[in-house]
């Protein structure tokens, strides 16, 4: 029998081995978490409909959709800029079809939607040395002055497209970065991050979106 399942599984099914890697010690320098169970929808304003799209987003999420590289927390979802007149909606999965139906109705005629829920993998990097680890493979300037909380960027890492944004600081006071990557490249990006983090010690785990 082939080892083959129709069940949804994480693109990091094999790559993510939960636990401590690299340097041992009381506290890991980097914390690496795969965030599962997301609804992810790409929203692209249709030609000449940028204003209608913004209006619909405001009505549905209660916040202005970002029109510069920012991540904005709205009610029930986070809106991350992903290009001129387009953004990505992320929400914890509750009832996927009704969540998407609600968006389809809200943006009807104004924007085109593309369900990417199982097309991307969300990786969250935090911890005291998280930024140092990212600096090894990303050309983004992540200094607080250049990349404060709420900043987003579409960028390339190892020839792979990555949407990166900075979340609110963690309980330890250190920055938290989210990275959204195509599922087919998730494995490769995961290895890049883990390799970069080994010298600081890295804790890896998986969690449900909340």
């Amino acid at each position: 029998m082939v080892d083959y399942l129709w069940n949804t599984q994480s693109p990091l099914q094999k790559a993510l081995v939960a636990g401590r890697h690299g340097v041992a010690g009381a506290q890991a320098g980097v914390t690496l978490v795969e965030v599962r169970d997301l609804v992810l929808v790409q929203v692209m304003a249709r030609r000449g409909k940028a204003a209608d799209t913004a209006k619909a987003a405001k009505k549905l999420f209660g916040v202005d959709a970002p029109n510069t590289p920012k991540a904005v927390a709205g009610k029930s979802a986070t809106l991350v800029w992903s290009g001129p007149d387009q953004f990505t909606v992320l929400a914890p999965r509750t009832d996927e079809s009704s969540q998407i139906d609600a968006m389809s109705q809200a943006f009807s005629g104004a924007a085109s939607l593309s369900d990417q829920s199982d097309g991307r993998c969300l990786i969250r990097v935090s911890g005291p040395r998280g930024r140092d680890a990212i600096a090894k493979f990303s050309s983004l300037d992540l200094h607080d002055a250049a990349f404060p909380v709420g900043t987003a960027a579409n960028t390339s890492v190892d020839h792979t497209a990555v949407n990166c944004w900075r979340e609110a600081n963690g309980a330890d006071g250190h920055p938290v970065y989210s990275m959204l990557v195509f599922t087919s490249f998730a494995d490769s990006l995961w290895h890049a991050i883990v390799d970069s983090s080994l010298e600081y010690g890295v804790d890896t785990s998986r969690t449900r979106a909340a």
């Binding site: 249709r46 030609r47 409909k49 940028a50």
Partner: peptide, 16 residues
């Protein structure tokens, strides 16, 4: 600068 037609800025063309 952005090339003409980037984003949703360009008006709808006939037939789109």
């Amino acid at each position: 600068t952005a090339a003409p037609g980037v984003g949703a800025s360009k008006p709808v063309q006939a037939g789109e």
